[in-house]
Design a protein around this nucleic acid. Structure first.
Lengths: 142, 142
DNA sequence: AGATTAATGCAAATAACTTGCATTTGTCAA
DNA sequence: TTGACAAATGCAAGTTATTTGCATTAATCT
């Protein structure tokens, strides 16, 4: 388990290691799929780690801002996150059961292998984020 | 303007043509970019078309369910929509100003041309939706 | 062990969206 | 044209995800 690697890193960076923090990181390593605040909250409860849902939200924000997590854009009204250090990859999302499967590596190199998973692709979402030509010149803060 | 084409189609399908419906379709043709309920509501107000925000939500749902609109997945807490009959394309979304620019056609054929727009791509989102191998066999309703 | 300050819990606030229900209004048929 | 009928609407209230304020707790450092 690589949770310790992140914990060490957090300590180096002078962040406190709390029970919630450690367990949430653990949960991400165990789940190996994108998770929402509510899902994490449920998993914590199962592990008898009793924390407020607010704490989960704050912890996700903390881990996101400090680059331990990244957001995954699923078609849902909830926000989903996964470990940031995972190799760049994409997802296969089932319309029916909602299962999220990984496509290892970038699809650009793997598009031909995707169908091998038996997944019927009905549509896809591709969005590029960055800076437009105008903003690129005068990028201030934020 | 192609609003009439949709209006005709709606009439053929026995849907009513209301002021809100006609104006919202118009707004999508004029905007030529993904819009949220709130944005549409503001544009309606500017046009002195006074309808409740609820009506806008219901109309978006109606147009979505009847395949006149499709959802665009932007990184936002709001839902965005655009005309469904637009040619398959993707978006360039600026981190700073939020501007949404179109990439004509599918990026697979256009990836080399994207940089010509001067956009600095910092990351992208690609998600495939469809049916996984298991669900593919026993796809029931919905 | 005690001080410092980040992290937490709890309650209340927001924000986006949805629902229930009584009223209005397109449409169609007479 | 008019009236009936169902679809569409407005308004108020509800729901869901997420955020914020503030007093309390607890991790870490000395």
């Amino acid at each position: 388990m690589q949770t310790k690697k992140i914990i060490n890193d957090l300590q180096k960076r002078n962040f406190r290691i709390t029970k919630a923090r450690r367990e949430i990181i653990n949960i991400f390593f165990q789940a190996r799929k994108p998770l929402s605040a509510k899902e994490i909250y449920k998993k914590l409860t199962k592990k008898h780690v009793i924390v407020d849902l607010t704490t989960v939200y704050r912890e996700l924000l903390f881990l996101l801002e400090n680059d331990y997590l990244k957001e995954v854009h699923l078609r849902s009204n909830e926000r989903f996150f996964e470990l940031a250090n995972l190799a760049h990859h994409h997802h296969l999302i089932c319309d029916k059961c909602g299962k999220v499967d990984d496509i290892d590596g970038c699809f650009l190199q793997n598009l031909d292998k995707i169908m091998g998973k038996g997944f019927l692709i009905k549509r896809h979402v591709l969005e590029f984020y960055g800076l437009c030509a105008e903003c690129r010149g005068n990028y201030g803060g934020q």
